[in-house]
Design a protein around this nucleic acid. Structure first.
Lengths: 136, 136
DNA sequence: ATACTTATGAGATAAAGTATCATCATGGAG
DNA sequence: CTCCATGATGATACTTTATCTCATAAGTAT
């Protein structure tokens, strides 16, 4: 994950390595505050700054929550167009690209006055791991 | 618009009438701050409170912006499931319901591990009015 | 008209994120 | 390898958005 920052000309500093390291393992959505608490050795300002750099670099995605805060998820797809589904119980996020979605958008666009420029789709799921543990 | 509040047992107060009145005419997205500035006779706290009541009543919809603020739009569809398209230039919002969308979600759901519980779709458009005025 | 309850306003407070700036580390030039 | 210019960090102050508090005012049922 550090490499994407290096490629953009940013320096390889100790705090950035620590943050990138922690993020490598993340499969769930996270807030910057929570991230910051896991990293007491790094100042909050730097966590905010680094997350924003990684966002710019496409290494993570940002999601606006309805309470006005933001959650983030690590991305393997980067800046390429994609969508997400999020487990409403455990917060696990997966990225997906579906040709069907893009086809649908084009077909809906025909019924909408004006040019459709962009779209945003999110699915909220009860993931297999969660429904399994509920059954117990 | 006041009637939906009355139906929920809320009182018909002067500030609420003033706010509802102003909202009747709104066809674009708006922020509570902007609304509050248009209503100097009503305290900001009351604008916030009333907008949240109207939200609960289904008379308006709330949208999370990527900068952490919220924008709202008046709704004719209320709590019934629907989506929006928003003009990225003038902010005009329209609601839409498309059976094709719901069919698509069901078909995508088949490829996703877990139960799809909810979804959210937003389209960003360049509306006819805006593209017309650009041409000039 | 009265009494009870709910709503309002003003300001305090909370929470999330950004800006400032002195100090320190990085990485390239020599 | 060392030095230096530049970029990064940390601590804290600040900004913005929104909610909370509580004394006062207004609605509504009777």
């Amino acid at each position: 994950m550090m490499t994407v920052l290096e490629d953009l000309g940013y320096r390889t500093t100790f705090p950035r390595k620590v943050i990138a390291n922690l993020l490598e393992e993340k499969r769930d959505i996270f807030t910057i505050e929570a991230l910051s608490e896991e990293l007491p050795s790094v100042s909050r300002a730097t966590v905010y700054r680094t997350v924003n750099l990684l966002l710019e670099a496409g290494a993570i995605c940002k999601h606006a929550a309805m309470d006005g805060t933001h959650v983030y998820s690590v991305s393997r797809i980067g800046h390429h167009h994609h969508h997400h589904y999020v487990c409403v119980k455990c917060g696990a996020v997966e990225e997906f690209r579906a040709a069907a979605v893009e086809r649908l958008i084009r077909s809906i666009a025909a019924d909408i006055p004006g040019q459709v420029i962009d779209h945003r789709i999110e699915l909220y799921v009860d993931c297999n791991r969660c429904s399994a543990s509920e059954g117990a």
